[in-house]
Write a protein that binds this DNA or RNA. Structure first.
Length: 424
RNA sequence: GGAGAGGUGGGUGAGUGGCUGAAACCAACAGUUUGCUAAACUGUCGUACGGGUCAAACUGUACCGGGGGUUCGAAUCCCCCCCUCUCCGCCA
């Protein structure tokens, strides 16, 4: 959520930034915020004046009562009643304006950072880095959804039987490969100074609002209505919400947490082309890194996080490209996002396996996540997160790219974790 | 699910109708002292939205889990809701 005072001070700059998202009529929305803000101020001022008078009178009445001057006190009470009536009249409309303002602010996405290109779709993303060469496979190479059947390592039918489409069952070496990847990712993160967190995989409503999944993306999360809990779509939600309503001690910065969790996404209506096999699931595993930084350090942290994620892909020997997302392709909370996509050689497609974002103060404002700086001033912090990494598509790419006539070769770095070097 | 206790500032915690935006302690910050560190001492120290100012000083309002109510006046009394803890039950 943007801060009203920032909108007030930097109206033009904010509109210019938001235009990069390809939004229409954004200037109207911003001006609506400003005009509601003016109205709010006026009304609040009136209200404050009324209340101020009441407070003075209340004190006087108190004193008069003490000194036994009842008649005089009664006279003042009449005036108080009048004031009370007026504040009562003003109250509801003030509330309405505040609610409207709040709703409007929730609906305005974060302002893209300066270097974010404008654009509407993935077409406008910019490839800023590549690693490796997309390999050409043998004639008889097959996509991962055939390989998992051939080697009997992931079973979609069983998942359908016990849960539904998009809930695969990992079996034997398939399960071990998953576990190996999770451990590998967690160990690597720890080497980079991240603290491991095991959060709940359900969160309450307040947490959903804190990181911005609510109210806009309500339909994306599984909702346990009996208890009003949401299954997390990413570990970002619980791990970032650890710091909701927190005044961080400056000495505890920077905060670097990593967590492995299953993630749940309803992805309602998005089934169809390009979502076969492991490409898109309702439940999947992911290791997520989350940082909380001082504003002046957050872009340095973003670079660090990208390089870290890239190092994982390089260790796994997966060809990848790094994209700077255009305004229209970024999530609403993000100020800047880099996506990492690995090449799945049998599908001949790039698969997104990581998304690294700086939210600047957008989340922190909702979260009320702040610290006191050296001057003793309370300041919003910056939040960042990145997948490091999302498992299924990594698995898909490993299976496809590493297939040989004898079986699937396990990446060298993973062998100590899997304790086998081929799936056959 | 049943019974009880409780939710106060960055933290612990006092506060049962006006003198309380809130004691005390801790933390933090600034300074004094000091060979350095530590200790000691002194001072500052909640948040939001306004007014005011070049900026301050200063100043208004609201906020003691959330929402309503009683009252001239509520952290304090009443009602509803949420959450936490303890005991019992159930489960692991």
């Amino acid at each position: 959520m943007l801060q009203v005072n920032v909108i007030r001070e930097q109206r033009d700059k904010i509109i210019e930034g938001l235009l990069k998202r390809g939004l229409t009529a954004i200037d109207e929305k911003i001006d609506q915020v400003l005009s509601l803000d003016v109205q709010r101020k006026e009304m609040q001022r009136k209200q404050d004046d009324l209340l101020a008078e009441s407070n003075i009178l209340a004190k006087e009445i108190g004193n008069l009562m003490k000194s036994g001057n009842k008649d005089e006190a009664e006279k003042l009470k009449n005036r108080t009643a009048e004031l009370k009536k007026q504040t009562a009249e003003l109250g509801p409309s003030l509330n309405t304006i505040e609610e409207e303002l709040q709703k409007l602010l929730y609906a305005i996405p974060n302002v893209p950072a300066e270097k974010v290109p404008s654009g509407k779709t993935a077409e406008d993303n910019i490839t800023v880095h590549t690693f490796g060469t997309p390999q050409t496979l043998a004639e008889d190479a097959v996509p991962h959804w055939d390989l998992i059947k051939k080697y009997d390592i992931i079973d979609f039918e069983l998942g359908i039987k016990i849960a539904g489409a998009g809930f695969p069952v990992y079996k034997g070496k398939g399960a071990k490969l998953q576990r190996a990847l999770i451990n590998f990712f967690l160990d690597e993160a720890e080497k980079q100074g991240y603290r491991e967190i095991q959060p709940p995989i359900v969160v309450n409503e307040a947490s959903g609002y804190g990181t911005g999944q609510l109210p806009d993306k309500e339909g994306q999360m599984y909702h346990a209505t009996a208890d009003n809990l949401y299954l997390i779509p990413t570990a970002e939600v619980p791990i970032t919400n650890l710091y909701r309503d927190v005044m961080v001690n400056e000495n505890d910065l920077p905060i670097k947490n990593v967590g492995y969790t299953p993630c749940f996404r309803r992805e309602a209506g998005s089934w169809g082309a390009h979502v076969r096999g492991l490409n898109r699931l309702h439940q999947f595993d992911k290791v997520e890194i989350v940082q909380i930084r001082k504003p002046e350090e957050s872009y340095e942290a973003l670079d660090e996080m990208c390089l870290y994620v890239q190092s994982l892909l390089e260790k796994l020997e997966l060809p990848y490209r790094k994209l700077l997302l255009c305004g229209g392709d970024m999530g609403v909370n993000s100020a800047i996002t880099f996506d990492m996509e690995v090449y799945a050689a049998a599908q001949k497609r790039w698969l997104e396996v990581s998304s690294v974002s700086n939210f600047e103060t957008y989340q922190a404002n909702r979260l009320k996540l702040r610290y006191k700086n050296k001057e003793g001033k309370t300041q919003l912090l910056h939040t960042l997160n990145g997948s490091a990494l999302a498992l299924p598509r990594i698995v898909a790419a490993i299976l496809e790219n590493n297939q040989t006539k004898d079986g699937i070769m396990v990446p060298k770095v993973l062998v100590p974790y899997t304790r086998f070097d081929i799936i056959n």
